[in-house]
């Protein structure tokens, strides 16, 4: 009889574990969108969406297959999943690109920046593009580098998609955002586009950080390297390394700065529940010092207090009665 009870408990445990792990995958079906300019863009992707392209060489009168410059390849799937999915290529690039072979001078054209479209537009007021620009101008990325350092250094216009507001999985946000930093800081070729300095080795520079791997997987670079701003979802004011957060307790405390950075969106959406301080931090991790539970705090103080009281009364009675 006892054995069957244990068996039942084990079955129940297995079912609970299964439901706990499986429900997360439900309801994540990708949103289906039909782009307005699929046909027009298709002409560009015919060459720029592949590693090779074909054309008829009128000089040699032959069909030729050439390799596409890897930096000019745009992944059409990524593009149609990005924020700019419903753009026509020629919204940003010259209409003259419709002719082949492209005119060599076209590559000199000035490319539009974020504010050229998003600036002063009430539709995007929530995103505070002007403030983002202002923060960027005050950041080391702007200070220490030439005008070549534009928004596009970090945000690829062909694949960029906002994640902090939309992603339900904070881990995805972390990987996505950290990959933006690593696209330069872990790639010497891109880094040298804007700097003659040696690219610092990130792992060595963060040697001092305990549980380095865990930190890298659970927080974004900007948590420590950017100054938070109340009105911008993702801080853009990257500070000099001397000003980076190095005090553990800035995150590992009840007033954890992570509530104002990584978990800002979740923190606004869901306020205190189950009595945990910084509950949004709890959904994805546990941060020593930041995740105290109000009720457990009260209960623990009560238990300690009660124990001490019993001890004191017992000791007092022993002394009194023995006298």
């Amino acid at each position: 009889m006892k054995f069957s009870l244990i068996k039942k408990c084990l079955y129940l445990l297995a079912i609970m574990l299964f439901t706990a792990t499986s429900y997360t995958s439900i309801g994540q079906e990708a949103e289906k969108r039909i782009p307005d300019f699929a046909e027009e863009n298709g002409l560009c992707f015919k060459c720029h969406g592949h590693k090779t392209y074909n054309y008829y060489n009128e000089w040699t009168e032959q069909n030729v297959r050439e390799r596409m410059n890897p930096y000019f390849i745009v992944d059409s799937i990524e593009f149609y999943e990005s924020n700019h999915w419903n753009f026509q290529c020629t919204d940003c690039h010259s209409m003259d690109y419709e002719n082949f072979p492209h005119d060599g001078e076209l590559r000199m054209e000035e490319k539009p920046g974020c504010l050229d479209c998003h600036g002063g537009d009430d539709t995007y007021a929530d995103y505070h593009f002007e403030e983002i620009e202002d923060e960027f101008q005050r950041s080391v990325h702007s200070d220490k580098h030439s005008v070549d350092f534009t928004c596009w250094m970090c945000h690829n216009p062909h694949s960029y998609k906002i994640s902090a507001r939309t992603s339900e999985n904070i881990k995805e946000v972390i990987v996505y955002d950290n990959n933006i930093c690593l696209s330069c800081h872990a790639d010497i070729n891109k880094y040298q586009l804007i700097s003659d300095q040696e690219n610092p080795n990130i792992l060595e520079k963060h040697d001092w950080l305990p549980n380095q791997q865990l930190h890298f997987a659970n927080v974004r670079c900007i948590e420590c390297h950017a100054k938070t701003n109340d009105s911008i979802m993702v801080a853009h004011l990257i500070q000099p390394k001397e000003l980076a957060v190095k005090m553990c307790v800035e995150c590992h405390s009840q007033n954890s700065i992570l509530e104002a950075s990584l978990y800002k969106f979740q923190a606004r959406e869901n306020r205190n529940k189950l009595g945990f301080f910084n509950p949004s931090l709890l959904e994805n991790s546990y941060i020593i010092g930041a995740n105290r539970n109000y009720y457990l705090n009260i209960i623990s103080i009560f238990v300690y207090g009660f124990t001490l009281l019993v001890i004191l009364i017992h000791a007092f009675l022993r002394i009194i009665i023995k006298k």
């Binding site: 305990p210 005090m247 553990c248 307790v249 405390s253 009840q254 020593i288």
Partner: peptide, 17 residues
């Protein structure tokens, strides 16, 4: 560690860890 904070420095967090 459990009650770590910026205002109270009982034992520095990294040393406590």
């Amino acid at each position: 560690m459990q009650y770590s904070g910026t205002e109270m420095k009982f034992i520095r967090f990294d040393i406590a860890v």
